[in-house]
Each structure stands twice: as structure tokens, then as C-alpha cells.
Design a protein around this nucleic acid. Structure first.
Lengths: 340, 340
DNA sequence: TTGAAAGCGCTAACAT
DNA sequence: ATGTTAGCGCTTTCAA
């Protein structure tokens, strides 16, 4: 009974069988509640298994079932700001189902991605989630024909067999602009990121669509970098005698919005009284540090990740899924559109 | 030869053996360069293996070797800003060695952590890395006696058998303050975070030690939140007629530093001419968005992660390691201490 | 140099 | 109701 007498190696099903005085087949049945077994036998087996701290070796199970109970997550932004919440949601859904997630960082390097896929396949993973390859459709590693489900999250793909999960950028923009319209703004400018981003087009479309529902005409869209500095520059372009002087700004992300808010304050324009601002991403640390705190559109990335987890589980279970699915964004209201 | 004639299931070692006209044992030897084998036989086997795109099933190998070739990474900050770079470094080192990393988010919930450990052990992982449990030594799940190596990164532990990897907070603070001294500042204030953080004490110690090397006396340390708002408040407390009016600020993190920079600008004080500022964390997006761009201390978290990867590989290989190891921080100079 | 055979830990079909 | 057996894909003696 001395702990030191216990073997250093983890107990196997044989140890349980011997200790319980039954065969290993019986132990298997008892522990998996499968097949017919005498209640008292099962109880005894379970008791022994617990006493021995027996942990079934899932690798051995996998060898039999053909399912490893793990998937790969390939990120292309070095586990950056966008991947994080996706990962969090994915893991939150999958962990309770006993599905492990292997993390791989490909940083948009096809060779690295290929090596990762090779290794993942050798580990017999049951599926792959690819994330954050968003700006352009660069040549990517072929993930079709791998024989396992593939899901792209927050990332485009030309694989017709794969499932693609994206935030509804256009809908999010509509949410933002509708909110500005609803608080009485009509001269709404759009300050956003570089044109080669798909999201930039979609959000602009939402901006235009929302305006078209009322008697407000769009102002020119200003494209620049995704930075605070650009937000400040844009304000310099928009405000002053003889300039556009919008009463609201819909910004392509929170950094731009924050830069704009700073520049407006330095110009003596009050936010939200003179100019209301809505950002995009709802990057908490930015939105809350903004003066005033920033109303923003949340892409619900954790929700996207969670949905990816649910879909992956279903697909592994044999339910085929494919095509593109958009998940709604949410408006998070803060001081930059309130309280005047 | 039609691809559609190929079986849907992945080829096994048997398929290779049959196709090459040898036994599976021979295939194993040929592919693993182990044992004696005729060069021509090996060549043929390799050719067949490649043609069939044979991928050895690592699960089956593991069953034999007792090593799964994967480890678990348990994060407690929901894959937050600090975990990300650690993860990145860890994966960068481990992936080329064929070691996979399972991501687990425990968010400081012992029950969740325990469940994760249970699952990881069932998956036969070869080691565990725990990260980002930094502020206080809360009761944690027992990871000792699991029979596998455990490494704490950016996180304290009372497990004497485990290895702990930490950034050298004190050294980093010395770096920061020495830099300020070197550019001629003598009245250096320290504005930092809540006192219950270990890092706050260590950095303060570094601040004091660096000052003690020259004829500069410390100013009172100001403790507050890790926020920009606190940075602004602190400046309000420090500057004005009859107040301390330091000629430099060493801030506990980049958010505080940025808030301070904003407040100083609004007071009409020039950074760095009137007041030089050094932050901590080198959070790129913050440091670069700061006006002027912020000199900061980089904890080299990716390097910490990489070191964890190297140590883990060594420990799995049988090399015992334990105790606490500090890795140096780096000074990243930007405009907030230059150019006057 | 190669093949046959015995496992690694577990499940599942088949006997008893 | 329980035990026996035949694998899952691979490695590794041990014979041939």
C-alpha cells in the first residue's frame, strides 16, 4: 500500500483486469458501458480503475477507431490579435468533446504550411481549421483531397469542398451606419483601410446601403492604412473651413477611429456632440482607452471560433458541410456616439 | 494509374510492403534507416513509399515508443497578449522536431485546468507547459508526480521539480533607468501598476538599483492601474507648480506610458525634450502609436517560448531540468528618449 | 539481408 | 455474463 511500491509506468487495462480478477475484454466493456455485464462486476472494475488511476490510452483507441480525437489549427497571423479569440472559441467548444487542437503557425509561408499539414496528417488528425488569411487570396497549400474536413475561419478559400466561416462585414457596416443615422447624423464619412482588402469593399458596401435607406448621400470614402496616424490625417483632410466637416465618422477599424478621435479633440471638436464616431473590431483595449470610449462593431470572433468547433465536430461525425456562411456582427455602444 | 482507382483510405505500411514485394518489417527498416538492408531494396521501398504518398502513422509508433510526440500548453489568460508570443516561440522550436502542441485555455479555473490535464494525459502527452499565471500564486492544479516534464513560462510555481522560465524584470528595469540616466536625466519618477504584482516589485527594485549607481535619488513610486487613464492621472499628480516635475518617467507598462505621453503633450511639455519616457512590454502597436513613439523594454516573450521549447525537448530526451531561470530583457529605443 | 512473429493498449466480434 | 481472439499500424527481436 506504500505509494512507492506502485509501478512508475501508467497502469494499463491489463493491470486493471488483473487487479479486478477479470479479463481485459470485460474491463473494456465495463468502462465503456458497452455490451452486457453484471452490475457488480462493473462496479468492481470501476472501483479498481479509479483506485489505480487508470487512464485509457486514447492513442490505442485511435488506432482502432481511425479517429485521433484531435484537429489542427493553422494560423497565418502568428497567433495575432484576430486568431486569439477564434482559437479561444474553438477550444472552448472542442475541449469538452475530448477533441484536442494542435496549434500551427504558418505565417503565410506555403512551405511552412505544407510541412505543418504533413505533420498533422502523420498525427492522424481528424480535421483542419485554417484562420486569418484575409487580405488577399494568395496561393495556398492544397487542402482538398486530404480526406478530412477543412474549415476556413476568417479567411477566404477557393476549395469548394471546404466550409468557410466569415463575419458579416457588410452587415456590420450597416449596423454602424444605421446607428449613426438613428442618432440623427446625416453627413457621415467613411475612413477606412487599404483597398486591396476584401473587408474594405464589403464594409463600404454596407455603408452605402445603409445610407441609401434614408435621405443621406454618401461622402467620399477615404482609404489609407489601418493606423491611428491615418485616422489623424483623415481628420485633417476632412475638417476645417471649406472642407467636408462631417457630423459623423464610420471608421474601418478601431485604430483609425482612435486616431480620428484624438485629432478631433485637438481641433477642439467635441465627440460625440460635434462628431460621432463608430469604429470596427471592438478591440477592447483600444476602444476603451479611446477618449471618449469608442462605439464599435464586434465581429464576434470567439463566436466564429465556437461555430467552427461545432461544425468541425459535426463534420467529423459524418455530416457534410461546405460553402460560405456569414455570422452577424454586433454593435457595441460607448461614449463616442452617446451622451450628448 | 487513374487517381480515382486509388483507395480512399491512407496507405499503410502493408500497402508499401505488398507493392514493393517485401515484408513489412523490411519496409520499416528501410524507411527508418535502421538495421541492415540492401541499398537497392531500400531504394525501391523508398520509391514505392513516395509514390503511394505513404505517411507513417505516428499514433502506432507512439504505442510502441511510449512517446506521443506532443505536449500540452495550458494558458491562463485566454490566449491573450502575453501568451501569444510565447506560443509562437514554443511552436517555432517544437514543430521542426515533430512535436505538436495542444492548446488549452484554463482561464485560471482550477477545475478546467484539471479537466485539461486529464485529457492531455489520456492523449499521452510527453510534457506540459504552463503559461501566464503571473500576478499571484493562486492555488493551482497539482502537476507534480505526473511523470512528465513540466515547465512554467512567464508564470510562478511552487513545484520544485518543474522548470520555471521568467523574464528578468529587475534587469529590464535597470536597462530602462540606466538608459534614462545615460541621456542625462536625474529626476526619474516611476509610475507603475498595482502592488500585488510580483513584477511591480521587481521592476521597482531595478529602478532603485539603477539609481543607486549614480548620484540620483529616487522619487516616490506611484502605483495605480495598468491603464492609460492611470498614466494621465499620474502626470496630473506629478507636474505643475510646486510639484515634482520629473525630467523622465519610467513606466510599468506601455499603456501607462502612453497615457503619460498624451497628458504631457496636453500640458504643453515636450517629450522627450522636457520629459523622456520609457515604457515596459514593448507592445508594438502601442509603442509605435504613441506620440512620440515609445522607447520600451521588451521581455522577449517569443524568446522565452523558444527556450521553453528547447528545454522541453531536452527534458523529454531524458535531461532533467528544474529551478528558476531568468531571461534578459532588451531596450528598444524610440523617439520618446531620442532626438532632442 | 530478409521474413516471421510477438507485442504496444485497446476494441469488438465471437465463443463459451 | 464473461473470456478468448483477432486485429488497428508499426517496431523489434529472433530465425532463416
Amino acid at each position: 500500500m506504500n505509494p512507492r511500491d506502485l509501478p512508475r509506468t501508467a497502469p494499463t487495462i491489463r493491470d486493471v483486469a488483473r487487479e479486478a480478477g477479470v479479463s481485459i475484454g470485460t474491463v473494456s466493456k465495463a468502462l465503456n458501458k458497452t455490451g452486457a455485464i453484471a452490475p457488480e462486476t462493473r462496479a468492481r472494475v470501476i472501483e479498481v480503475a479509479e483506485r489505480l488511476q487508470f487512464r485509457p490510452n486514447t492513442l490505442a483507441k485511435s488506432l482502432h477507431s481511425g479517429l485521433s480525437g484531435s484537429i489542427g489549427l493553422i494560423s497565418n497571423d502568428s497567433f495575432g490579435r484576430f486568431t486569439m479569440p477564434i482559437m479561444e472559441g474553438l477550444e472552448r467548444v472542442l475541449a469538452p468533446q475530448g477533441i484536442g487542437v494542435f496549434m500551427c503557425n504558418a505565417t503565410d509561408d506555403p512551405a511552412r504550411e505544407a510541412a505543418h499539414v504533413e505533420q498533422l496528417m502523420a498525427k492522424q488528425i481528424d480535421g483542419i481549421v485554417v484562420t486569418a488569411r484575409r487580405s488577399d487570396r494568395r496561393p495556398s497549400v492544397h487542402l482538398e483531397g486530404l480526406g478530412i474536413p477543412v474549415i476556413y475561419v476568417f479567411s477566404h478559400s477557393d476549395d469548394p469542398g471546404a466550409l468557410t466561416l466569415l463575419p458579416d462585414d457588410k452587415g456590420g457596416a450597416e449596423l454602424a451606419v444605421s446607428h449613426l443615422l438613428q442618432i440623427g447624423r446625416r453627413r457621415i464619412a467613411h475612413v477606412t483601410g487599404p483597398e486591396h482588402f476584401e473587408a474594405v469593399h464589403l464594409r463600404r458596401k454596407g455603408y452605402l446601403d445603409a445610407l441609401s435607406t434614408v435621405d443621406a448621400s454618401p461622402l467620399p470614402t477615404l482609404n489609407g492604412k489601418w493606423t491611428e496616424a491615418w485616422g489623424r490625417d483623415a481628420v485633417a483632410q476632412l475638417y476645417g473651413p471649406g472642407k467636408t466637416n462631417p457630423d459623423a465618422l464610420f471608421c474601418g477599424n478601431d485604430l483609425i477611429a482612435r486616431g480620428a478621435a484624438d485629432a478631433l479633440r485637438e481641433l477642439g471638436r467635441l465627440v460625440p456632440d460635434d462628431v460621432a464616431i463608430v469604429g470596427f473590431d471592438n478591440w477592447a483595449v483600444m476602444a476603451e482607452a479611446c477618449r471618449p470610449a469608442l462605439t464599435s462593431i464586434d465581429m464576434n470572433l470567439a463566436g466564429l471560433g465556437a461555430e467552427a468547433g461545432r461544425c468541425m465536430a459535426a463534420m467529423i461525425g459524418g455530416q457534410p458541410e461546405h460553402g460560405q456562411r456569414l455570422l452577424p456582427c454586433t454593435l457595441i455602444t460607448r461614449a463616442s456616439t452617446l451622451g450628448y
